[in-house]
């Protein structure tokens, strides 16, 4: 069966234009990488049919979802999606259980490899089932949203930084589950993330977005390696001392000469150097001290 996702068109905003000409086969999970403001979330919203002003064509599995004409498109609720937004977006005034039931009751396809019990167990939700959505932490909300999206038994899964609010342990655990479940369920996946290691483990093809346009497209590992080499070659090595680390929030306080800066650490140490290099311009000189302090 074709799993072709075609997006051609543009979305113009006051200070931002998303300009797309994409044709990808989603039989391999697709990752989307890009800096903040590159248009990653907007791209997912276009696929989901949430950007009414998108002018162009969106097609999935040969079905035209959007054709420039607003009246001709398939509305969001008929697209068979499972979407996890960055902020979880749970239905307020409902318990976790009720949020999950909302998705289950509207699921198009009830046959699935992963059961409700397996999901709530693996995502560590059983003790939260009777809690109102409002009292959950950011990470818990994202896990409920992930369970909810999977329980909707979607034809297409759109995940927008779905693990960002979780602590490093939960993140690694969830990546493991997703890597196991998604192929088992056979659900086409579009995965947006800043974290290279998440993309490396969960996706096999990658799109790099910059200011609303695709600047690179190809195999995930090839593009990530190329990116990493490019960063290494231009990075300016500087000496920094790791003053303290906050494992719970994945942050570290660094001293560079007279300045003190805070950096966000990714989940895996091997990629720490790359992430810091990319975000803060810190070079390899950081790594030995960082390892020492974190260990």
């Amino acid at each position: 069966m074709s799993r072709q996702l075609i997006i051609k068109g543009s979305l113009r905003r006051a200070r931002f234009t998303l300009d797309l000409d994409l044709d990808v086969d989603l039989s391999k999970p697709l990752g989307i990488l890009g800096a903040t403001g590159a248009g990653k979330t907007t791209l997912l919203r276009v696929i989901a049919g949430l950007e009414r002003d998108f002018s162009g064509r969106v097609e999935f599995c040969g079905e035209v979802w959007h054709d420039g004409d607003h009246f001709d498109r398939v509305p969001t609720h008929q697209r068979g999606l499972g979407v996890v937004f960055q902020d979880g977006r749970l239905l307020p005034g409902r318990t976790v259980e009720s949020n999950l039931a909302f998705a289950q009751q509207r699921a198009r396809n009830v046959n699935a490899a992963v059961s409700y019990e397996a999901l709530t167990e693996a995502l560590d939700l059983n003790h939260l089932l009777s809690e109102p959505a409002e009292v959950l932490s950011g990470g818990e909300r994202q896990r409920v949203a992930l369970a909810r999206a999977l329980l909707a038994r979607p034809r297409l899964l759109l995940l927008d930084e779905p693990l960002a609010a979780n602590d490093a342990d939960h993140r690694q655990q969830l990546i493991g589950y997703l890597a196991e479940w998604l192929p088992a369920e056979g659900i086409p996946l579009v995965y947006v993330s800043h974290a290279a290691h998440e993309l490396a483990q969960l996706t096999r093809q990658l799109i790099v977005l910059e200011r609303g346009s695709v600047t690179a497209q190809g195999e995930t590992h090839v593009l990530l390696e190329a990116q990493s080499e490019a960063i290494d070659s231009v990075a300016r090595p500087v000496a920094a001392v790791v003053m303290s680390t906050d494992v719970e929030h994945s942050t570290a306080t660094l001293q560079l000469d007279d300045d003190v800066a805070e950096a966000v650490l990714p989940g895996e140490r091997v990629l720490l150097q790359r992430e810091l290099t990319e975000d803060s311009g810190l070079g390899p000189a950081l790594q030995p001290q960082s390892d020492e302090n974190e260990g």
């Binding site: 969001t76 937004f85 998705a103």
Partner: peptide, 25 residues
Amino acid sequence: ESVLEAAATLGAPPRDRWLNVVLPM
């Protein structure tokens, strides 16, 4: 609006969203 969008992505048509999301809220 974000909550209504989330409900739509879960397969809830407009009437369903009105009755089961908007009205309780």
